[in-house]
Design a binder for these strands. Structure first.
Length: 464
RNA sequence: GGUACUCUGGCAGAACGGUUAUGCGUGAGCCUGCAAAGCUUAUACAAGGGGGUUCGACUCCCUCGGGUACCUCCA
């Protein structure tokens, strides 16, 4: 599998001959997660599920940043502790992402639980004279890492000339960044240099190396993390260990609203809870995977509606498959095989989910065509269903489950309706159909028989 | 201002130095008691402007322009 590497600016082969180690920069838990977080995490979820479907073992680490000024500020304004804030939003994180069918990471390390590792890491940097202490904290000396800027393609001189007003005049170089900030106010931890808390970048270096080793396969996150976060991580990690840090840097494009990045100041943030309530996990996932992961996608109700249409086709396909009773009448093996290969090839080439979805929808269309022409054989349906489910699992799409009782009840209602239809008592037949519609059961009348499908309830469907 | 990315039909969107996919939308039709869903089929002067390389450019190069992101809050 090939993945575009931000550092080398080219597609790199991912070594899948052994366990693949992935570190994804997670969220800072000071507020609810939004659709932008969802996209990044869904992209990595698909990457991971695809590799696992190929029996590649994955170690997937995603951190929670639970030490941060924003958390502390929030705690102060809500008159509570930073710990309570981070605990609350970690809980919310799991509610949101479980709702989005995202598989749990191997581990979710937190900065607060890795203070020893972080302190040790900083000690090493000081030992190597790459970091130094001032009255405000411990700083990483950018000039000690000549390759600084290699990820973000920035030149040190240019950064220096464009630097903002300096707050800490004790720093040797305005580009130097804090790895430890002194503070007396909670939450603080002890360190050999004094009480305080770690800088933002150091936790990811320390925790990724702790769990994945000094040199691991993929380090990822949103595009906006390239500078300074990932640039600084590289500087710290490589100057500490002396070896290459991540082999591949994979960055996911932003989700924009009307072409602009979501931000607090613009007030255009769409929380996952909000979009989940309106559109459900499947449509959000289809939307997030509709373009190439490296490019920005623009959030709009129109696009979500488009994906709703697609989701209905998938539902139809699924229910046609499980209700199939006909005899096989068309050779389909070759086309299924081709679609399957196209799907895999698309993902193999830098996780091209858009092309993979094209292949997937070809399977859906083909199935619905066969069903419409009364040619969907029961054995073929089995083959198609297996392939459909394989793809859906990778894409993280899920048809809501139903109980046997529910199914039986529907079947009974359909038989009564059939009876009414035979007797041409159409008003009575329609009453039954309406009743089923109220339960989101849609009837599909085929020649001589009626099948049903249970539609996922999408609140956004009827808005506007 | 610097750097990077980007500009494809009404919308979304990929691949590719040589018929520009695919989906949505829209039109027509099929199926149906009627619907719905689905299917079939049609649809589009489609590549920001200008130049160049080439037998041939959406694809490569130059240039001008628009947009977005980043330039120590960011997924």
């Amino acid at each position: 599998m090939k993945i575009q590497d931000t550092l080398l600016n080219s597609k790199q082969e991912l070594d899948t001959s052994k366990k693949v180690k992935i570190y994804l920069c997670g969220v800072t838990v000071y507020d609810d997660s939004h659709i932008g977080h969802a996209r990044t995490i869904i992209v990595f979820d698909v990457l991971r599920k695809y590799l696992e479907s190929k029996n590649v073992e994955i170690e997937f680490i995603q951190n929670f940043t639970d030490v941060d000024d924003k958390i502390i500020n929030r705690a102060n304004s809500e008159n509570t502790t930073a710990e309570e804030i981070s605990t609350k939003y970690i809980e919310n994180y799991f509610k949101d992402f479980d709702g989005l069918n995202v598989k749990h990471a191997t581990r979710y390390p937190k900065a607060t639980e890795h203070m020893e590792d972080i302190v040790k890491f900083i000690e090493k940097l000081i030992e190597k004279q790459i970091a130094y202490t001032t009255k405000n904290g411990v700083y990483f000396s950018v000039s000690k890492f000549p390759e600084y800027g290699k990820l973000s393609k920035k030149k040190i001189e240019e950064l220096q000339s464009g630097v903002r007003i300096e707050i800490d005049e004790a720093k040797k170089d305005p580009l130097d960044f804090a790895v430890w900030k002194f503070s007396d106010r909670e939450p603080v931890w002890n360190s050999p240099w004094g009480k305080g808390r770690p800088g933002w970048h150091i936790e990811c270096s320390a925790m990724s190396i702790e769990y994945l080793g000094e040199n691991f396969d993929i380090h990822g996150g949103g595009r906006d993390l390239i500078f300074p976060h990932h640039e600084n991580e590289i500087a710290q990690s490589e100057s500490c260990t002396g070896v290459q840090f991540a082999k591949i840097w994979m960055h996911v494009g932003m989700v924009t609203i009307n072409g602009e990045k979501m931000s607090k100041s613009l007030g255009n943030i769409k929380s996952i809870r909000h979009v989940l309530e309106n559109w459900g996990p499947n449509i959000i996932r289809l939307f997030c995977l509709s373009g190439h992961y490296s490019k920005a996608i623009d959030y709009s109700e129109e696009l979500l509606k488009e994906n709703l249409t697609k989701w209905r086709q998938i539902e139809t396909c699924y229910y046609e498959l499980i209700h199939s009773i006909n005899k096989n009448s068309e050779k389909i093996d070759a086309i299924i095989e081709k679609i399957s290969v196209d799907f895999d090839n698309a993902l193999n080439d830098d996780l091209n989910t858009h092309l993979a979805l094209s292949a997937f929808f070809q399977l859906v269309k083909e199935t619905n065509r066969l069903a419409a022409e009364e040619k969907l054989g029961i054995e073929d349906a089995g083959i198609i269903k297996k392939e459909l489910q394989r793809m859906m699992k990778i894409l993280g799409l899920k048809i809501p489950k139903m109980t046997e009782n529910e199914k039986q009840e529907i079947d009974d209602m359909i038989s009564s309706r059939e009876q009414f239809r035979k007797e041409k008592r159409f008003e009575d037949a329609d009453k039954i159909r309406d009743k089923l519609n109220e339960k989101n059961i849609e009837l599909i009348d085929h020649k001589g028989r009626t099948i049903w499908m249970k539609k996922e309830i999408i609140n956004g469907e009827n808005q506007k």
